[in-house]
Amino acid sequence: MQLLAGGGRRRRPWTLAGPALVLALVVLVVMSDRPYMASQKRPGTGPKHNLVQQQQQRQQAPREQGRPWGKVLVGMTVGKKCRARVEQMLEDWGRTQFNYMFFVYDGTDWSALEALDGVTVLQTRALKMHHYKANVPPERVDGYDFFLLLDCDVGLAHFDVHSFLDIQWERQIPIAQPSVAWGELRDRSSDHRVCRNVPGPHYGRWTTFIECGPFVSFMADAWRCVYDLVQGDLGSGWGLDYKWCAYARDVCRLRPALKGPIRTSPDDGGRVCAVIDAQVVDHLDERTAFGRLGSNYQPRQDAVEFERRFPDVESTTLTNCLCACDCRGGPLRSVWNTFVRSTQVFGVWNFLQCECRF
């Protein structure tokens, strides 16, 4: 330190080194508090077209390696409006690994499909949960690896079922769904934000909520578990989907088989349910089955009655969250999650949005 005339001291010039070091320490602390860190190397952050290319490579790679899973049972409520989509699904998915149960709610003739091997057609005018309670008991999924529950108004034009099931099988996710494309339904009360597609260099997100439609995928043990919750007289499924993740976690003690470290804490939601962003479906919202039951039918009544019947099973109420860990935690965690979500349009923040992603 140099002395100036008159006994004064020359001050050192101000630099950014100190604040930068503090910021780096803050980021390190935040990242160390993430409940899950994938063991595999994450794709780097690059130009947007590179991220799209990486995502396409991830989706195509499992198909080149063969199918690690076996048979799949598909249950679907169907009517006249979705006949063309069902025929296209049969052509695309095939009947080698997939068997189908079609529940016709509007009385239309599906006998041509019933003649096909691996296809069962049942004519009952009722909502979907009545069909599944009556026709898909736990023993019905014996010999299957997955049970898929589909609605008539699911759009599969951009969906690859093989890649989707590869992802679910690799991580042994008990209950999963493809993400739902953003569209005109974004403001609908039943179209939950946590289920809508989140773009980025990841496969999916662990959540505490999986919507009861238009597409839910259960591993066989998961369907055997939640079958006890299914109420045939509460046919819409509203209310059931608020509880089945917690029920599978707390009552059936289902857990995924994950590679790498995982923290067991209240913040991780048990890692039982996941939304797969790598595969997207459309929710066309035709509501044909509801319409045939009359305008007085309100599915929200089912949710209220379901809550009354199962008060001891935890309900996921904060479904307008991005990830499972956003639903829990203290006020500082809530502020941080809000900040990350509000800045997700900037690619530089991608590495900070991985708390529930894999």
Rank of each mutant, 00 (worst) to 15 (best):
D92F: 00
G79Y: 01
Y105R: 03
M76I: 09
D92W: 00
R95G: 11
T96F: 00
F102K: 00
G70H: 13
C82M: 11
V86F: 01
K71T: 11
F98P: 06
K81E: 13
G79K: 04
V86Q: 02
E87H: 04
L73R: 03
V78W: 01
K81T: 14
C82T: 13
W69F: 14
V104R: 02
N99P: 02
L90D: 08
V86I: 10
W69Y: 15
P68G: 05
L90P: 04
V78E: 02
V86Y: 00
C82D: 15
Q65E: 15
Q88V: 02
Q65H: 14
G66T: 13
Q97W: 10
Q97K: 14
V74L: 08
V86A: 06
K71N: 14
A84Y: 01
K71M: 12
E87F: 00
L90F: 08
V104K: 03
R67A: 12
G70W: 05
F98A: 10
R67H: 13
C82L: 03
T96K: 11
K81C: 04
V74N: 00
Y100W: 08
V78C: 11
W69V: 03
G66F: 09
F98D: 07
Q97H: 15
E87C: 07
Q88R: 11
R95E: 06
T77P: 01
R95P: 06
D106G: 06
M101S: 12
G75A: 14
P68S: 07
C82V: 12
V104W: 01
W69M: 03
M76Q: 13
M101H: 12
E91I: 03
M89Q: 12
M76D: 03
R83W: 08
R85Y: 05
Q88G: 07
E91P: 00
R83D: 13
F102S: 05
L90V: 04
C82Q: 12
V86D: 00
Y100R: 03
T96A: 11
E87Y: 02
R83L: 11
P68Y: 08
F103C: 06
L90Q: 06
D92Y: 00
V86N: 01
V72I: 13
V74R: 01
K71L: 12
K80A: 15
F98V: 13
K81D: 14
F98K: 07
F98Q: 08
K71H: 14
F98H: 12
W93L: 10
D106C: 05
V78R: 00
V72G: 04
K80W: 05
P68K: 07
C82R: 03
Q97D: 13
L90K: 06
N99Q: 15
A84C: 02
G66I: 11
K71Y: 09
